[in-house]
Amino acid sequence: MESVQELIPLAKEMMAQKSRGKLVKLYVLGSVLAFFGVVLGLVETVCSPFTAASRLRDQEAAVAELRDACEQQSLHKQALIAEGKAQEATLCTRALSLRQHAS
């Protein structure tokens, strides 16, 4: 059915042929559901730019959180590497000082 104007003559013709009432009810129900589908589609189309903007903001916030976490992890790794180098330097100087006294 392309338009509502076609539904009314169809219903009149079905009633003139003495079709069962269930069949007419089925066509009316299908038409009402199609109408609600069109209305919901229009509402979704109108509201979609607003929801897309909020999704974009949420996505940007998530990316910022990941970036901060990566930076903190890299700073932590650098601190561990620097700490390890300091311990190695301490161990090397101790070993050299022990050798000087041993000889």
Rank of each mutant, 00 (worst) to 15 (best):
A79G: 11
V39M: 06
L91S: 06
S31V: 07
R20E: 14
A95V: 02
V39R: 12
L98Y: 05
M15T: 05
V4A: 01
P9I: 04
A64I: 05
M14H: 04
S31K: 13
R94N: 11
A64P: 01
I8E: 08
A16H: 14
E6H: 04
Q5G: 08
A86N: 03
V43W: 06
Q100R: 08
G21R: 08
L33Y: 06
V43D: 06
E88T: 13
G30P: 01
L33C: 03
V63T: 07
I81A: 15
L7S: 04
T90M: 13
V32Q: 09
V43K: 11
A89E: 10
E65S: 15
Q72G: 05
E65Q: 10
I8G: 01
S103R: 14
M1W: 11
L40I: 09
E2W: 03
A95F: 00
K18M: 13
D68R: 03
G30S: 11
P49N: 03
Q100T: 14
A11W: 11
A102E: 10
G41D: 06
A62I: 01
C47G: 11
Q59G: 06
A89V: 02
L56P: 01
Q78P: 00
A16P: 09
L23P: 02
C47D: 04
V24M: 14
H101A: 12
T93P: 00
A69P: 03
A52K: 06
C47T: 13
Q87K: 07
R57D: 15
D68H: 04
D68P: 00
E88A: 12
L98W: 06
V38E: 14
Q59W: 05
R99W: 05
C47I: 13
G84Y: 15
V4S: 05
M1N: 12
A16T: 13
Q78T: 05
Y27S: 09
V46N: 09
Q59H: 05
Q17L: 13
R55T: 12
L91Y: 07
F36Y: 10
R67V: 01
K18G: 05
V43E: 03
L75K: 11
F50K: 15
E13Y: 13
A69Y: 00
P9C: 01
G30L: 09
A86R: 15
E60P: 01
C92W: 10
E60F: 01
A86V: 08
P9T: 07
Q5T: 02
A95L: 12
A95E: 02
V46H: 07
L26K: 14
E13L: 11
S97T: 06
M1K: 04
K12I: 10
I81F: 10
I8S: 10
Y27G: 06
R99I: 09
G84A: 15
